[in-house]
Write a protein that binds this DNA or RNA. Structure first.
Length: 881
RNA sequence: GGGCGAGUAGCUCAGCAGGGAGAGCACCUGCCUUACACGCAGGGGGUCGUCGGUUCGAGCCCGGCCUCGCCCACCA
């Protein structure tokens, strides 16, 4: 039985992907060695949250690095793609809490331990599901090194980092203004707050003087917080109020007496120039309060309801309280005006609740000393962003960072390694639970209830996953890593924090390059969100088209850092490309000897088209390598596509068909080259489309697996400029004739005769390529034009260097042809004008590089020749009328 | 209030030491030419947002403007 009979007509991703992934896993190809003499190449996967299912963003996060990993593995590097998952404290806790509440239970009822047990179960379930989903993307991770941010080892790293930073004074505990999410019931960091523009109102409220007539009118967007006011402030320079400073005001709706103070913070231009000061509920007011030693009165509970001591408002949510208070103020004549404005409000990036600012006792990372070296490292180029513009965003953030609030009032996460003495209140930060208080020896200690921001552990990912703080072999082998591939949406959350953490704790940057990718939008250019329900499940796409096609759609024609719209049509064209390659492979296989031994084929046996495709292969390899090294995956993929489809399939295979048919030594040479270049293209394509390429490889009965073969060396594919220019000439001629045939709608079976008019060398090329001209351009006989001859009943087609006169009198309308030639003349004349214009321009001739000028001169010469030819043709044709 | 990105063929997007624009899809014409109709051959279609500048030469560099999108920012 011929080999080909066992090869299906279409590549079937569904069955092949499963089989091949199994083969890869078994072969150990994903596994990176440690220690190893090979050059390491490491990428850490951005760990997906264990909260849900994979989306297109994850497909990008994993497919892009996988291209690089597979490329470097083929290059012979010790390539490690380390996978993992993130415990995602706040997101997971919210999900589990919701699940519990759906059962009619509460977190508190389960208790901390019960809740954590439940969450670990959740983790097992989702973690495994995510791993299974990731495998379906075809990514070549070292699964034996899979990490989870709450793993023992990673937790050790977290504690180590916390203690070290604390001991250096870079972590502190203190009462600061923080962002409080009344939905998640925890503090969150600045970057977890999303600002959105909302329509609101500016309420003008009059605060009467305690003594005497009149009062002060303030403007506020949050009238309900007035119950927490402890002063009204004006700018000290404000002449309008200078004489009033020191006066006392009575807070409406209450009997509280508050002072009128002066503080530079107040903007005289805004509102009335008078600002109510609410230290408990506004960060700026808090600062003002500190400066003036104002009392802090809070009127909001953790769930953002009015506290019990707000009298009739107690228990109301903010909106209701606002409405009620405004109504009361109005009724009592304190409300003077309501002005509609739009303003920014902060919402929780997790649950969307309105964020409340409040002073709170929390843990913070002191950022300034950490940020500085992290800025320098990028500035010095120790770490480069691709594309570079994202460095600006990084710098801007790093240069203005404020201290990072890292404590969370959550249970799911790394618990803060701090204890308090119940007897003397001593604070103890330690790697392990202390037995007794170092100050008073009391054994009555309690541990801090809070956990750490989930990003605190993610920040250590590049080294904690390798066993740091232990000096493990893995750490020594793979760290620092080479590239990281995140979306631009997590530059602050993750990339920036990894950089400063790595520098602080390992003394090195965590990665040399940051390849930023854009967001995958829906086909209308909108973000994929749950609320729009426009998300596309990568696995569904894989079910239909296969993982290779999906990868293609995410890489082809995209540029680093740019958003991309997801369109199924693009996946389809990926699938079509796979089919194209698959059939080219089938064609080659059909024509190969079963033993595939071509050692008898010598270089002398190669024909010009063989030498041409090898020449082209040389440059294809070079270009693809260059693009991949520059992390230009889109361009690299396009280059491979073009080589495979345009050059190998559309030209080369067509060129050699006849030789294959004829057999003989020329046919054998063609088989050999066909086979060689097939092996080449599947290697070049493998990083992008691992499955089809591996499937083809397996049908070729070659040694081992494609995944662990080697990247082609361009030096092994000889360049041959002569072959290249010969083939260019031939292809141009073929194109020109095809063109003509199409214009005149000649049936493909109808052969035409041709006469070549060109200088000897060029004419010879065409005569040598007679077979190809015959098959690909439908030329029957071809001969050189003799000196004295003029071909009366022919039509001319030009190609660079010459002209073909096609004998087709019976097929051509002479009038139309003359018309066509006249139009052609006009076109050429315009070109000549343009070209002459340039060459007459002294500036151009003197200043442009000689090469460019010569090119232009050559063009002009050619145009002039063309014009002459056209004129001649018109003349001859005219005689035929 | 700053910063960034996008504006290129009907659509989705590439493009670059600055040297006369490409792909995929769609469209039109002709082909089931035994690898592939998930295909082959050919074709139409672009003043590269706009105005100005630099340059011998600009989609690419500089400046202004317009439209869309994103990010950052403690003026109530």
């Amino acid at each position: 039985m011929k080999k080909i009979d066992s090869v299906p007509k279409y590549f079937d991703p569904a069955t092949e992907e499963k089989r091949l992934y199994g083969l890869w896993m078994e072969s150990g190809a994903f596994h990176a060695e440690a220690p190893s003499d090979k050059r390491p190449f490491t990428i850490m996967m951005p760990p997906p949250n264990i909260t849900g299912v994979l989306h297109m963003g994850h497909a990008l996060d994993t497919s892009l690095p996988d291209v690089l990993i597979r490329y470097h593995r083929l290059l012979g590097d010790n390539a490690l793609f380390l996978p993992g998952t993130d415990h995602a404290s706040i997101a997971t806790e919210a999900r589990v809490t919701a699940a519990i509440e759906a059962e009619g239970l509460s977190k508190e009822q389960l208790g901390r331990e019960g809740f954590l047990k439940r969450t670990w179960e959740w983790k097992d379930q989702y973690n495994n599901r995510i791993i299974e989903q990731q495998k379906r993307l075809g990514i070549s991770c070292d699964w034996s090194r899979h990490r989870f941010t709450l793993d023992e080892g990673l937790s050790e790293a977290v504690v180590e980092v916390f203690v070290r930073l604390y001991e250096k004074g870079l972590i502190y505990r203190g009462e600061r203004m923080i962002n409080w999410c009344p939905g998640c019931l925890t503090s969150i960091s600045d970057i977890e707050v999303e600002h959105e523009e909302q329509e609101g109102a500016l309420y003008y409220i009059k605060y009467p003087f305690v003594d005497g007539e009149g009062g002060i009118t303030i403007a506020t967007t949050r009238p309900e917080t007035m119950l927490a006011d402890t002063a009204v402030a004006v700018n000290p320079e404000d002449a309008r109020f200078k004489h009033l400073q020191g006066r006392k005001l009575r807070l409406p709706l209450t009997d509280r007496i508050i002072p009128l103070i002066a503080d530079e913070y107040v903007d005289m231009e805004f509102g009335t120039g008078c600002l109510k000061i609410t230290p408990a509920h506004d960060p700026n007011d808090y600062e003002v309060g500190l400066r003036h030693d104002l009392p802090i009165i809070s009127i909001l509970t953790d769930t953002a309801n009015m506290t019990e001591d707000t009298g009739k408002y107690a228990g109301m949510d903010v909106r209701t309280a606002r409405k009620t208070i405004v109504a009361d103020l109005k009724e009592q004549g304190f409300l003077t005006e309501i002005e509609e404005i739009s303003h920014n409000v902060g919402t929780c990036s997790r649950c969307g609740s309105l964020i409340e600012a409040k002073p709170s006792l929390q843990w913070f990372v002191h950022m300034e000393p950490l940020a500085k070296p992290a800025i320098d490292a990028v500035r010095n180029g120790e770490t480069d962003f691709v594309p570079q513009r994202f460095e600006k965003i990084y710098f801007n953030w790093m240069e203005n960072v404020r201290d990072w609030c890292i404590s969370r009032q959550l249970w799911w996460g790394h618990r803060i390694p701090a204890w308090y003495c119940n007897d003397c209140d001593e604070l103890i930060v330690a790697r392990e639970e202390p037995g007794k208080c170092p100050k008073c020896n009391s054994t009555s200690l309690r541990r801090d209830e809070d956990t750490l921001d989930t990003w605190f552990s993610s920040a250590l990912w590049p080294f904690s996953t390798l066993g740091w703080p232990q000096k493990t072999v893995d750490y020594q082998t793979f760290y620092p890593t080479d590239v990281i591939v995140p979306g631009y949406d997590i530059i602050f959350f993750w990339v920036a924090r990894m950089i400063f953490s790595a520098i602080e704790h390992t003394g090195q940057v965590p990665f040399k390059k940051v390849l930023i990718h854009g967001m995958v939008l829906d086909s209308k250019g909108r973000k994929m969100t749950k609320s729009l329900n426009n998300g596309i499940d990568p696995l569904e796409i894989i079910d239909i088209y296969g993982a290779d096609a999906l990868r293609f759609s995410l890489i082809y024609g995209t540029a680093p850092g740019n958003d991309m719209r997801f369109r199924e049509e693009k996946v389809e064209s990926g699938r079509n490309f796979i089919n194209k390659l698959w059939n080219a492979f089938r064609f080659v296989l059909m024509n190969l000897d079963d033993n595939r031994d071509y050692s008898d084929v010598t270089a002398e046996m190669l024909e010009v088209e063989d030498r041409w495709i090898l020449h082209e292969a040389h440059y294809a390899i070079k270009d693809v390598g260059t693009y991949l090294d520059k992390l230009e995956l889109g361009l690299a993929q396009e280059r491979v596509y073009q080589f495979i489809w345009d050059l190998y399939c559309d030209w080369y295979i067509e060129f050699v068909k006849e030789r294959l048919h004829q057999g003989g030594s020329s046919g054998r040479a063609a088989q050999k080259v066909l086979f060689e270049v097939l092996q080449l293209i599947i290697k070049l394509l493998h990083p992008f489309m691992p499955y089809v390429t591996e499937a083809i490889y397996s049908h070729l009965d070659l040694d081992g697996l494609l995944i662990s073969s080697s990247w082609p060396q361009y030096e092994e594919y000889p360049t041959d400029n002569e072959a290249a220019s010969t083939m260019d000439c031939l292809m141009e001629a073929i194109g020109a004739v095809r063109n003509l045939r199409a214009d005149y709608q000649l049936p493909s079976a109808k052969k035409v005769n041709a006469v070549v008019k060109a200088e000897d060398a060029i004419a010879q090329r065409l005569l040598d390529g007679e077979d190809m001209l015959s098959r690909l351009a439908g030329i029957g006989e071809i001969r050189r034009m003799s000196e004295a001859e003029t071909l009366k009943d022919g039509v001319s087609v030009q190609f660079p260097g010459g002209e073909l006169l096609i004998s087709m009198r019976e097929l051509v309308d002479v009038k139309e042809e003359i018309q066509r030639l006249k139009e052609e003349e006009d076109r050429i004349k315009k070109e000549i004008q343009r070209s002459e214009g340039m060459l007459k321009n002294k500036n151009f001739v003197d200043r442009a590089p000689e090469e460019v000028v010569n090119k232009e001169k050559a063009k002009l010469e050619r145009y002039q020749g063309d014009l002459k030819q056209a004129a001649e043709r018109i003349e001859t044709l005219s005689t035929m009328l």
